[in-house]
């Protein structure tokens, strides 16, 4: 479902080449819940951005849902992001002065979904993250946890094949973080493939598979028993 082969990513800083990803090969099957861990600067975000089609590797191959994305053009990548990827950021990245509903509709807008259908699907997505009664609120009127739920609804609204989250609880207090992780677990149980980057072992505990990075390499790929839901 998700295949990375010999991924390399080099950055040129001044005259030096920084190797952010060094020969990473990973296979993720449909329906997996995978957490990505590792010290700061180990290449977790770089890896997620590759998988999320936000960035292209220097070398190597990425296949998402049967489509080799590592050699696509900018516009083609945008289309893959729109159709197949749901991305959740640490900073939420919601549009200010825009209602939760309109924020969630955004991917549908770029996907060319007709107006009426957009509203219905955005409502469904918000309902799924438990924010049905907050649809008209703008981000400033929502708590951090609620904002992240809106962001998750936005990631879900296009029915992606994979949900990618880069430190989704990083900007939240631990109680709210737990709520968000439980939401991911719930979504995973409903069949969605989930990849979560995190520093906290707590958070990683929700996943059934842990990928450990160090210096741009995968140093461990462990399976673990799923944590019980609350």
């Amino acid at each position: 479902m998700l295949v990375c082969e010999d991924l390399h990513k080099d950055y040129l800083v001044g005259n030096e080449t920084v190797c952010a990803l060094d020969d990473v090969s990973v296979r993720v099957e449909r329906g997996e819940f995978l957490s990505v861990m590792g010290p700061s600067g180990s290449g977790k975000s770089t890896f997620m951005n590759m998988v999320g089609c936000l960035d292209t590797p220097t070398r190597g191959r990425i296949v998402v849902d049967g489509e080799t994305v590592s050699e696509l053009s900018r516009d083609a990548l945008a289309e893959v992001r729109n159709r197949k990827i749901g991305f959740v950021f640490q900073q939420f990245h919601l549009l200010g002065r825009t209602s939760a509903l309109d924020n969630v509709e955004l991917p549908l807008l770029y996907g060319g979904v007709p107006r009426a259908e957009r509203a219905v699907r955005a409502e469904q997505a918000l309902e799924r993250v438990g924010l049905r009664d907050r649809m008209g609120h703008v981000p400033a009127q929502l708590s951090g946890g609620q904002q992240q739920r809106v962001a998750i609804a936005r990631a879900l609204v296009n029915r992606p094949v994979v949900l990618l989250a880069d430190e989704p609880t990083g900007a939240l207090d631990s109680a709210t973080g737990v709520e968000i992780m439980e939401l991911f677990q719930e979504l995973n149980e409903a069949g969605i493939t989930v990849l979560v980057v995190t520093h906290e072992p707590e958070v990683a505990g929700y996943a059934r598979r842990v990928l450990r990075f160090r210096d741009g390499r995968v140093i461990a790929d462990e399976r673990q028993p799923a944590r019980m839901t609350a």
């Binding site: 936000l54 516009d75 945008a78 992001r81 990245h93 991917p107 770029y110 936005r154």
Partner: peptide, 16 residues
């Protein structure tokens, strides 16, 4: 800039 990045992340093409 951040808004532009976000729009691109959810599927906006250069033309959009």
């Amino acid at each position: 800039t951040r808004e532009i990045g976000l729009r691109m992340a959810v599927g906006a093409k250069g033309r959009d």
